[in-house]
C-alpha cells in the first residue's frame, strides 16, 4: 500500500510535469516549423550586387564640419535614427570624429592642419572578419555573402556582446523606445524597438532596388561605393591611384571603409 501510494504520487507528478511541459514543447515545435516554411523568393530585378561591398572616403573634399552634415542627415533621416538629448543613450549610424579619435593609434605629435582640425566621417566598417559577428550568440548580427554586416532586429536579444566586441564604437543600443525621438519619421522604413542594437547597414534596402547608399548619394562624389573584389570598379581605381588608410588595421578585422587623406 505504502509502496503503491508512493508510485501513484510519482506517476502523478511526472504526468503533471509532462502536461505542463507540452505547451512549451508545442511552442518550440511551432517556432521550428515556422522557420521551415519554404517560400519562393528572388532578389529584385534592379538590385545591384557585389562580391564585397566597400567604400572610399576622400577626406580632401571636405573643408568644414558643414560639409559632412548632409551625409549624416541623409542617413539618419531615411533610417529613422532618433535624436536623443542624453549623450549616454545616443544612437548614430554615421557621424563625425576628430582624427585622433577616428584613428587613435595614428596619433602623431605633429600633423598637418587639415587633418588636425577636420572632422572625419566614421561608420560601421563592415569588416571582413567582424568581431561582432563572432560574438553574437544568436546570429542576429551576421555577414551577408556580399560582405555587408547586417542586424536582424527580430532576433537580437539585446545582450550587447557585439558592442563590447566592436573596436570602432560603431554600434548603438536602444536604451529606450526610440519612436518619440524621431522628429520626421520615414514611413517607408521601420523604426527600432527598445532593447536592440543597431548600426549602419550600408543601405542594404537601397542596394536592393538599385540605389547607392544615402550618404554616398549626398556626398557629391566625396564618398565612393563599390565592389572591393572587382579590379575594374571605381573604388579599386581610387585605391590604386591614392594612398589610403583604414581604421585600426592592426587588429586584423579587415575594415571595408578606406580613407584618402
Amino acid at each position: 500500500m505504502e509502496n503503491s501510494r508512493r508510485n501513484f504520487l510519482k506517476i502523478a507528478g511526472i504526468s503533471a510535469l509532462g502536461l505542463s511541459a507540452t505547451p512549451v514543447l508545442d511552442a518550440f515545435a511551432l517556432d521550428i516549423s515556422m522557420l521551415d516554411m519554404k517560400i519562393n523568393a528572388t532578389p529584385g530585378k534592379d538590385a545591384i550586387t557585389a562580391k564585397r561591398w566597400g567604400m572610399v572616403i576622400d577626406t580632401r573634399k571636405f573643408e568644414s564640419e558643414e560639409d559632412l552634415k548632409p551625409m549624416i542627415e541623409a542617413c539618419h533621416k531615411i533610417h529613422n535614427v532618433p535624436v536623443l538629448e542624453n549623450k549616454r543613450h545616443e544612437i548614430k549610424w554615421i557621424w563625425e570624429e576628430e582624427f585622433k579619435h577616428a584613428f587613435p593609434n595614428l596619433e602623431h605629435e605633429y600633423v598637418n592642419e587639415s587633418v588636425e582640425h577636420l572632422p572625419f566621417l566614421v561608420l560601421c566598417n563592415h569588416c571582413k572578419d567582424a568581431p561582432c559577428v563572432r560574438a553574437c550568440p544568436t546570429k542576429a548580427t551576421f555577414k551577408r555573402e556580399d560582405g555587408i554586416i547586417l542586424m536582424d532586429f527580430h532576433r537580437c536579444i539585446g545582450c550587447r556582446f557585439c558592442m563590447a566586441a566592436c573596436p570602432y564604437g560603431s554600434r548603438s543600443f536602444n536604451f529606450r523606445d526610440p519612436r518619440p525621438f524621431i522628429k520626421d519619421i520615414n514611413k517607408k522604413f521601420p523604426t527600432r524597438a527598445r532593447g536592440v542594437v543597431e548600426k549602419c547597414n550600408f543601405c542594404a534596402e537601397r542596394l536592393a532596388v538599385g540605389q547607392q547608399p544615402a550618404c554616398v548619394e549626398a556626398s557629391k562624389g566625396a564618398l565612393v561605393f563599390g565592389d572591393l573584389e572587382n579590379p575594374e570598379s571605381e573604388v579599386r581605381r581610387l585605391l590604386k591611384t591614392n594612398y589610403t588608410i583604414r581604421r585600426k588595421v592592426a587588429l586584423g578585422t579587415g575594415p571595408s571603409v578606406y580613407y584618402i587623406v
Binding site: 515556422m34 516554411m37 517560400i39 523568393a41 528572388t42 556580399d146 536582424d152 527580430h154 536592393a208
Partner: peptide, 15 residues
C-alpha cells in the same frame, strides 16, 4: 516570418 528571414537574411525581396 519567412518573408522577414528572406528579406533580412537572404536579401531576396520578391515573393
Amino acid at each position: 516570418n519567412s518573408w522577414r528571414n528572406s528579406v533580412v537574411r537572404n536579401k531576396n525581396r520578391l515573393y
